[in-house]
Design a protein around this nucleic acid. Sequence first.
DNA 1: CGACATAGTGAAGGTGCATCATCATGACGG
DNA 2: CCGTCATGATGATGCACCTTCACTATGTCG
Lengths: 159, 159
Amino acid sequence: MTDPVKHTEALGRVLELVVVLSDDMSRSLAAQGLTDARAHLLWELHERGPSTQRVLAEALRVSPRNITGLVDALVATGFVTREPHPTDRRATLVTFTEHGATIAAGLERDQHEFARILFEGMPDDRVTALVEGLDEVLARLRAHGVSLDARPDESEAAR
Amino acid sequence: MTDPVKHTEALGRVLELVVVLSDDMSRSLAAQGLTDARAHLLWELHERGPSTQRVLAEALRVSPRNITGLVDALVATGFVTREPHPTDRRATLVTFTEHGATIAAGLERDQHEFARILFEGMPDDRVTALVEGLDEVLARLRAHGVSLDARPDESEAAR
DNA sequence: CGACATAGTGAAGGTGCATCATCATGACGG
DNA sequence: CCGTCATGATGATGCACCTTCACTATGTCG
């Protein structure tokens, strides 16, 4: 039971944070000439190193076809290049240009900067409480069957 | 100072929650034949009652032109109708059909259901801590100049 | 070698968003 | 009363993201 009203209030806070945060991050990315999707791709590339488009498609959870377009755009703006895969002639390795690598490193700095803005000076126990609270919420979501790759199978039967 | 690593971890949790949550909500909406934007419009209509498209555009923070399309879609699927404004012949009042009102009420139930899934059984003090933590983060975001209607003026000068 | 799987792309389409131009109507000062 | 300006909605275009289906080129395995 606990308090349903408080629960709805908490959900409201989470949703508000979602809106404000994603809005601000998008704006910050746009200032660097990046869209959300392209920045996401750059980020994955930054963490994985040169990758095939197939791998990127799975990382971003989008169709391989879509990756083609994103890579096209990033190639056009000089952030990445397509290199032949050394052993598989079907595949291409998406690789940073120098410029792209610089930008990607900047994304990481931006993330730290963001964390600093949000949490700097906040008491440690408060941050810990927040992380634990969010972890529990995430755990509940997963327990409820939100696996983040739930295919639209015949899973949903309720209602 | 406090701990930068913990801060980055906390940001990671927030971002993960954003992804998982919005993904799940989208799926839940799609199951009712609604896209995110159309559901958002329905939600505003539910909270405001019959509204002009202009008002909806401001509520959703999108261009009036875009509202025309969303309303078109909702009219086509029978969720809303366009009624003439009683006093201003330029304007139209977007109004629920019976079906639309039912669906909108369902959205509200869904939100409560969602809150229940996320928080039911969680100790009250934990929920409170979470809300307070999120409030502080939101306050910091705003203090940092994220006003949610920051026009791309000449505000950004840094970097 | 033949059957099948896999990497990437062309074609076509849906959705959400934007801007600019246009039309009809409202509001206000002279 | 009327001209001017503001405002509500929409037509026309265009971009970004995403999808599915079809197809080519290549890898893999019996």
